[in-house]
């Protein structure tokens, strides 16, 4: 009873019970029921069969590629997304609004279109590919192509999570730091970055999660070779097309659990960082 009162006492508006009920119903319909169907379907396999499917060499290679390329893509986006957000918030230049709008394009573009466009550009006879090929850099149809595609689709996440936080940080704070004798690097590392960390980590987590599940754009540029450039979602589709539904969901369950664990780690990191920062203030 006492606990219930403290829950409710935070809000001036009534309707907590109804709102919570609706939230749970909504989440169940949209998220929990489809996800539990995945687990139930994979339960058609015995434990031994399940293990054999999810630890097959091809499956292991595909996890490495999917999670590895997604992490690299998200890291690249964390760096360059921060830079982009910085430019968009701190400076005015002609065409700024246009650049701002460009950032969202990877959200809006159908992923298949993105995949075909990237492949056309990076193929050995494409605009960029023909210059990279003589240097011995192959992008399209290699794991590097997967990284390129996953970086592309993850770009907006970091920019859009960091941007509002940066807007709230007034330039006066930087000036104050300078007045107090901080050099430029100290201002960035000691004043700005701690405030930006939580947003940056959230952006990284979103970009990473999006990239792990990405299928549409990757299959065009990856080459899809088993053991080399085959992503886990493609392995799932391949299994479906061989009418192995239980095997497909087994791989899906592994991805689901791994993604959940990774997001949990990232979120606790974010909580820890913001908590530490909060205490310092």
């Amino acid at each position: 009873m006492a606990i219930a009162r403290t829950w409710k006492s935070h809000s001036v508006l009534p309707g907590f019970g109804l709102a919570l009920g609706f939230t749970i119903l909504y989440l169940s319909l949209i998220v929990l029921i489809p996800l539990s169907a995945t687990f139930i379907k994979s339960a058609e396999l015995s434990l031994g069969e399940f293990w054999a499917v999810v630890t097959a060499p091809r499956a292991l290679a595909s996890y490495r590629l999917s999670f590895g390329a997604a992490a690299i893509g998200a890291l690249l986006n964390a760096g360059f997304g921060l830079l982009t957000a910085w430019i968009l918030v701190r400076y005015t230049f002609p065409g700024k609004r246009l650049v701002d709008a460009f950032v969202d394009l990877p959200f809006a573009l159908p992923t298949a279109v993105a995949g075909i466009a990237l492949t056309a550009v990076y193929a050995p006879n494409g605009w960029l590919g023909q210059w990279l090929e003589p240097l011995g850099i192959k992008v399209a149809f290699t794991p590097l192509g997967v990284v390129v595609a996953l970086t592309f689709i993850g770009l907006p996440f970091v920019v859009r999570t960091v941007q509002p936080v940066l807007e709230d940080l007034e330039a006066e704070i930087e000036e104050a730091a300078a007045c107090l004798g901080a050099n430029r690097w100290q201002t960035f590392a000691r004043v700005l970055l701690p405030a930006l960390w939580p947003a940056l980590i959230t952006g990284f987590a979103l970009a990473f999660a999006r990239a792990v599940g990405e299928y549409g754009s990757v299959v065009f540029i990856a080459g899809n070779m088993p053991m080399i450039s085959e992503i886990s979602p493609l392995l799932i589709i391949t299994k479906l097309e061989q009418h192995e539904y239980a095997g497909a969901t087994a791989i899906a369950v592994v991805m689901l659990v791994a993604s959940f664990a990774l997001l949990l780690v990232i979120n606790s990191l974010q909580w820890w960082v913001s908590h530490r920062h909060g205490r310092k203030q």
Partner: peptide, 10 residues
């Protein structure tokens, strides 16, 4: 022969 295949389209 299949070691010579660089891309497996669907």
């Amino acid at each position: 022969l299949f070691r010579n295949v660089p891309v497996l389209d669907t």
